[in-house]
């Protein structure tokens, strides 16, 4: 457990020291939101109805950009082999990287949420439920992206292969998260939206478990 936290912490520190990583992603998303707002706007109602979709599509793009960073530095510095040489089973590498990806996604997601609220007039009365949706959705997304990023880490064309594999698998996450956000924005009581919350939970449990079991096999050799 300590190892998992250390690995995630180290990656986060490196990410923030690097400066080029997360900041440029956030600015890229801000520009993207701007363009999308221009495409949908300026009518306030149109923007409002597009907001949940925009939020989650933007986050999905951010996720595919950030996914490469999970193992990018390890490959550049050749430290992946050192990680693999540490004693014990290898699931902890997955959990460490998952935690790192999850933290990145949540941070970017929070920034996105604020930006969407501003640019797309997303009503924020239920902000706590938005955050819960964001946490669950990011975890599901990170579970898959971390797995594939590790699997394709040493491959040359991984920047294009990663989204190709990632997007079809995360459709349930995006769908559920968009529906939840939309329902909350329209003021539908949370009890009527609990199916979607349950779907996200089931997705997370299934995929985190399966990915953790399969991950060591993907890294061997």
């Amino acid at each position: 457990m300590r190892r998992v936290l250390w690995l995630a912490w180290r990656d986060l520190v490196l990410e923030f020291r690097g400066r080029t990583g997360i900041l440029s992603v956030v600015f890229f998303l801000a520009v993207m939101l701007f363009i999308l707002a221009m495409a949908f706007g300026p009518n306030q109602q149109d923007l409002q109805s597009a907001a949940p979709g925009v939020l989650w599509v933007a986050l999905a793009f951010a996720g595919s950009l950030l996914a490469g960073r999970a193992f990018g530095l390890e490959i550049e510095d050749g430290t992946l082999d050192d990680l693999l040489l540490t004693a014990g089973s290898r699931e902890w590498i997955y959990f460490g990287k998952l935690l790192f990806q999850f933290a990145l996604l949540v941070m970017v997601g929070l920034a996105l949420l604020v930006l969407t609220a501003g640019l797309f007039y997303l009503p924020m009365q239920h902000w706590n439920w938005y955050v819960i949706t964001l946490l669950l959705g990011s975890l599901g997304y990170a579970a898959i992206s971390t797995f594939y990023a590790g699997m394709l880490a040493r491959l040359r064309g991984r920047e294009i292969l990663l989204p190709l594999l990632l997007f079809p698998l995360v459709i349930p996450v995006v769908l559920a998260a968009v529906r939840l956000t939309q329902g909350l924005a329209e003021g539908i009581p949370i009890s009527e939206l609990s199916d979607w919350l349950r779907l996200l939970l089931v997705f997370n449990i299934v995929y985190v478990t399966v990915c953790a079991i399969l991950f060591p096999a993907m890294l061997e050799g």
């Binding site: 898959i144 797995f147 699997m151 594999l165 079809p168 698998l169 299934v206 995929y207 399966v210 990915c211 399969l214 096999a217 993907m218």
Partner: peptide
């Protein structure tokens, strides 16, 4: 890995 995740 892809086939297993995809089938699930």
């Amino acid at each position: 890995g892809i086939a297993i995740l995809g089938s699930i």
